[in-house]
Nucleic acid binder design. Structure first.
Length: 353
DNA sequence: AATCCGGGGGC
DNA sequence: GCCCCAGGATT
């Protein structure tokens, strides 16, 4: 089957099976002349980086409700955007999202550039997102290559070279299959195929529109692909987290540095995270060691010992003193919310006792 | 090219 | 527990 017929059979499948998403213009609506808003496509694609559709939906609705246009988002305070992003992970995305919004609002008159090269120059937009915005928002014949496409291509062509070594080959194979007609629908179609049919486990080959040309199916290697190089074991680090509540009920927090782990997010003061951290509270007080919380990041496990105190003094900068009304646990990244939940129990216990 | 960066759902 | 996910920035 040649590349043109491959694309056509996938588009025919997509016409009947396209999933509905809050940011998507489905194939029927698009055929009737509807066009997606580039702002919504960009926002959704950034949120969808390494994140599932189900997890993104509520965040997308919330963001577009608060900020209907990119100029609205560009005018938003950093702290509010970081707070709204809390829980979604990969917080550099939120910082770059704001940078990008402000560049588009100020330098591009609020209109997204259409060509892939210019899109690539914007913060937080890499090869995948540049191609997806160009293809989906502007229907330009660009090739999207994400984890779905890599898996589909590795199986369609029975590629046994492991990722990421095989990425250039899979990208080239994907490019050869991208049609000049309806490239935006095609991009969404191949990702839908990977998400619903050509899944990592238990792929639904019997109902796949590409069953006939699939070489991995022919060779019975579908579930072995894509192959990957073995990954390193995650080390475990330890640390202390210090939760202080003033006698007025306010909480003592800090804003984390813009770069690095949980960059730009709100958090509790803490020790170094290492094999043998020192218990060094941020200021004088009767600190009481409570229980531990566990959390796993991309590349290490973390065990934090929660240490709490009551304080009558507001500690100086850089610490932030947030009143009970100002403080919202939902503004915290998940590991810091675990610390808070653990400390809450102990504060409650000491009050009762 | 390798490393760093979250969190949730499936199994 | 491990794997995966509509990846990008940094070094």
């Amino acid at each position: 089957m040649n590349h043109q017929n491959l694309a056509l059979s996938l588009l025919n499948w997509y016409d009947e099976n396209a999933r509905e998403m809050p940011w998507r213009i489905g194939p029927q609506a698009r055929a009737a002349g509807a066009r997606p808003e580039p702002y919504r496509i960009w926002l959704s694609e950034v949120m969808l980086q390494q994140t599932t559709v189900a997890a993104v939906k509520t965040y997308f609705e919330r963001f577009t409700h608060l900020w209907p246009t990119i100029s609205d988002l560009a005018a938003a305070p950093d702290e509010q955007v970081m707070g709204e992003w809390a829980g979604l992970g990969y917080y550099a995305r939120a910082r770059n999202l704001l940078k990008c919004a402000r560049i588009v609002a100020q330098d591009f008159g609020g209109e997204f550039p259409r060509d892939r090269k210019t899109l690539l120059s914007l913060p937080g937009i890499g090869p995948y997102t540049a191609a997806s915005v160009a293809a989906i928002a502007f229907d330009l014949p660009e090739t999207v290559v994400d984890g779905n496409v890599e898996r589909v291509m590795s199986r369609l062509h029975d590629v046994h070279e492991p990722m990421p070594l095989s990425k250039p080959l899979l990208t080239d194979l994907a490019r050869q299959t991208t049609p000049k007609n309806r490239p935006g629908d095609y991009a969404q179609a191949i990702m839908d195929l990977g998400a619903t049919i050509c899944t990592p486990k238990s792929p639904k080959c019997t109902i796949c529109p590409w069953l006939d040309p699939c070489l991995a199916y022919k060779n019975a290697t579908v579930t072995q692909l894509p192959k990957k190089v073995p990954k390193a074991v995650k080390p475990t680090r330890y640390g202390f987290a210090y939760v202080a509540q003033s006698t007025s009920g306010a909480w003592i927090l800090e804003r984390r540095p813009d770069k690095g782990l949980l960059g730009g997010m709100l958090g509790w003061p803490g020790s170094e995270w290492s094999v043998a951290p020192e218990n060094t509270p941020p200021f004088e007080g009767e600190w009481a060691q409570q229980g531990n919380i566990k959390h796993t990041f991309t590349h290490f496990h973390l065990i934090l010992t929660v240490v709490t105190t009551k304080t009558a003094i507001a500690p100086p900068s850089p610490y932030l003193t947030l009143s009970a009304n100002e403080f919202q646990a939902s503004d915290l990244p998940t590991v810091m919310r675990k610390v808070f939940d653990s400390a809450q129990i102990h504060f409650t216990d000491t009050r009762v006792a």
